[in-house]
């Protein structure tokens, strides 16, 4: 951030990137969110979690939602999935209002959401069985999706026998098997270590390239957002509002080498500035060392 690049460098798009965004805008709208608000009563009185969220997602677009903790990004995705209700505004999927969860919206959760009593294959078959597919059809289709995420060999394993990254890959396959219009992902790689996470990001982009699926992805990792997204929706907290929608100028196809490129750094810097504003808040953690502390060890027993 110390370099003297103009602050709005992230707004400059190359010709190819601009053309790509133009093409995306031409595509049909999958998800439309208009004036979405969420209020709920808590012990501290009424809380406004979300206010006036507007968002349009086009077919096969990859949108990331990012924001500080408490900005309501999880609430937003839960409302989109139909798991929570909203207080105002509307959510339209293919022009029809969303009521409750449905097969047209797949969801991948942060925590492990695989059914532990089912094998990997039966987990993936679950959605198909709920749709009334015959066992045999569901099975062969599930195996195809497992191959797609590279876990065909583990069809008969149980989730607890898999690593964290593998489990999330199964969760993705399980959500995709219903061929949802949009795949909602709530910090799906948040619990993984850095290395596995990087692999999973590449894997997800690969899946997205090959399948007709639109992705709305929630994260708190700025690099992840810039690396994956076409557009990044930045939320601010208390109440959760849209701060800015950033069109990521990093050209596709993406690769980890772009992390050091000028577009990537400019976008990341902009996100950083939005989410961690330069002025330190009053109750910053940095004040902790100056706090007066009671000495709990011997006076002469110094560590530094």
């Amino acid at each position: 951030m110390s370099n003297r690049q103009p602050a709005n460098l992230y707004l400059q798009q190359s010709e190819a990137v601009r053309a790509r965004f133009e093409r995306i805008r031409q595509r049909e709208v999958i998800l439309e969110v208009r004036g979405l608000g969420k209020r709920y009563a808590s012990a501290q009185g009424e809380v406004e979690a979300l206010r006036g969220i507007d968002l349009t997602v086009h077919r096969r677009e990859f949108v990331c939602v990012i924001g500080p903790s408490g900005c309501g990004k999880s609430t937003l995705i839960r409302i989109l999935a139909g798991l929570d209700s909203h207080s105002s505004g509307e959510v339209l999927l293919d022009g029809k209002p969303v009521r409750g969860p449905g097969r047209d919206r797949g969801m991948v959760f942060q925590g492990y959401s695989l059914f532990p009593w089912l094998t990997v294959k039966r987990n993936v078959m679950f959605g198909l069985e709920m749709s009334g597919y015959a066992r045999g059809t569901a099975e062969s289709e599930a195996l195809q999706w497992l191959d797609l995420v590279g876990l065909g060999r583990f069809a008969e394993a149980y989730p607890h026998q898999l690593s964290g990254g593998m489990r999330q890959r199964v969760a993705i396959a399980r959500a995709l098997v219903n061929q949802p219009r949009i795949l909602l992902m709530d910090e799906p790689f948040g619990a993984l270590d850095a290395q596995t996470r990087a692999k999973m990001q590449g894997h997800l982009l690969e899946i997205w390239r090959n399948i007709d699926v639109t992705i709305l992805f929630i994260t708190h990792d700025l690099d992840e957002a810039v690396y994956l997204a076409d557009r990044v929706l930045v939320l601010k907290a208390h109440p959760g509002e849209v701060q800015e929608v950033i069109e990521v100028p990093v050209p596709r196809p993406r690769s980890p080498e772009q992390f050091t490129g000028p577009e990537f750094r400019a976008t990341r810097a902009r996100l950083e500035a939005l989410i961690h504003p330069p002025a330190p808040p009053v109750d910053d953690d940095s004040r902790v060392p100056t706090m007066h502390m009671i000495r709990m060890t011997d006076v002469s027993d110094n560590v530094e």
């Binding site: 798991l83 409750g100 969801m107 709920m130």
Partner: peptide, 28 residues
Amino acid sequence: DTTLVEASRTLGARGLRLLVRVVVPGIL
């Protein structure tokens, strides 16, 4: 775990089938 129930709902399970296919095996 509510995540299991919610996951199954996003996959199209509801009502008695949710109970028989998710809740009961989940608590077994």
